[in-house]
Design a protein around this nucleic acid. Sequence first.
DNA 1: GCTCAACCTTGACGTGGGTCAAATATTCGT
DNA 2: ACGAATATTTGACCCACGTCAAGGTTGAGC
Lengths: 232, 232
Amino acid sequence: MSSCDTCVVRNRAICAVLDSKEVEALNGIGRRRNLEAGEALIWEGEESVLVANVIEGMLKLSTGTEDGREQIVGVAYPSDFIGRPFGARTSHSVTALTDARVCLFARKDFDRFAGEHPALEQKLLRRTLAELDRTRDWMLLLARKSAEEKVATFLLEMSSRLVEPGCEAPGDKPLDRFDLPFSRQQIGDILGLTIETVSRQMTRLKRDGVIGLPNRRAVEILDRQALEASAG
Amino acid sequence: MSSCDTCVVRNRAICAVLDSKEVEALNGIGRRRNLEAGEALIWEGEESVLVANVIEGMLKLSTGTEDGREQIVGVAYPSDFIGRPFGARTSHSVTALTDARVCLFARKDFDRFAGEHPALEQKLLRRTLAELDRTRDWMLLLARKSAEEKVATFLLEMSSRLVEPGCEAPGDKPLDRFDLPFSRQQIGDILGLTIETVSRQMTRLKRDGVIGLPNRRAVEILDRQALEASAG
DNA sequence: GCTCAACCTTGACGTGGGTCAAATATTCGT
DNA sequence: ACGAATATTTGACCCACGTCAAGGTTGAGC
């Protein structure tokens, strides 16, 4: 019996399309690894060596300019696939935001396995297409929305993303209270804003009674309608 | 003999992985279509009905907010694949920028065909992964670069993208003179800037002797080093 | 409980790029 | 070639957001 049998993301990660024999084989070329918050797994610009499934925790994908400006270009949640299969360099760093647990593969092993399992490639294709759609939607926010709209949109996104994954039920309701897995600085890096602007917008929403901020990381949505209006 | 035998993108589009029998079969479910500049093929938010290969010309992928702000989230060149296979809604409009010619499929037919041809899905996966990388890189530009950096980066990108596709040789040199396939407004929509700002930055680069602007659409790169420096 | 180091908030101020308006340039139809 | 429509440039102005600079909070380690 492989450790996959008890894996919490067994039915949500790309492994879901594999039968138990195939999962066993995949397990044979992978290994678990724990990451501490802040630990990097993949570095921008390096040759693509590793790919992984996220089991637990959250990671950021990021790029930066030479002069130190950083942009978070994606966030990986449990069951998401990370890394760059099929050859190229990895163009984005991957860093744990929280303590995390991943199921790690040597890229070459994974590529070979995928080549032999079209169903896995199909699953990966569907995910990648969905991720591309989401990324493109985010471009509109980065390029065109005001700071207020960005922060409001971000909070709404968080409230639906952070729903506990109770099995694979997709009809989960958004949360009205949650803990942000990001620091203010990281929120700025996601939204293309400075930390000060993020802080000011959050304070404003709080002052207007739209949200509550019980503590540094917690957010409470008090008036969802107003928040949606602010999101534009 | 199918029309694919003489297709200029036969060896560069996703069809390249298919043998002549398979191409024949794919050809059976597709059809050619000419688009005029400005003509839309796919509308944001609609059910995904069509997918296509670009044979000739260029198309934009775009989203907008309700209040009329638009953002171009991608540009499709000859041999690129457009549309949203596998189920979902299409989240971006697709509109011809120039007169264009595409090889069109009903999404359902294409999905079925792809399901039966893993090599095609693999090719599509590789393309989608590459497109996702490029899109994420663009996010850094949208979120963090100044107007000057944006315009300079854009011009450099154009100078390498607009190289005539002489077969599949990838080692083509960037052009030092080319015609933009975009209006100033569209450049603004790509860079997340207003038309005025684009115009001012172009004028500035011209005044500084970095580029020449022989006419509305033409661009001449006079000092590539300086342009690269401006791109940050 | 105290200290130190992050982290976050708040304020004052400056500026890049948006907005509005008008002048030019180019294209197109006749 | 002429006039109308469209695209681009240019200028004046202003405001949202970045920058710089203090404070406040929070929490981990002692």
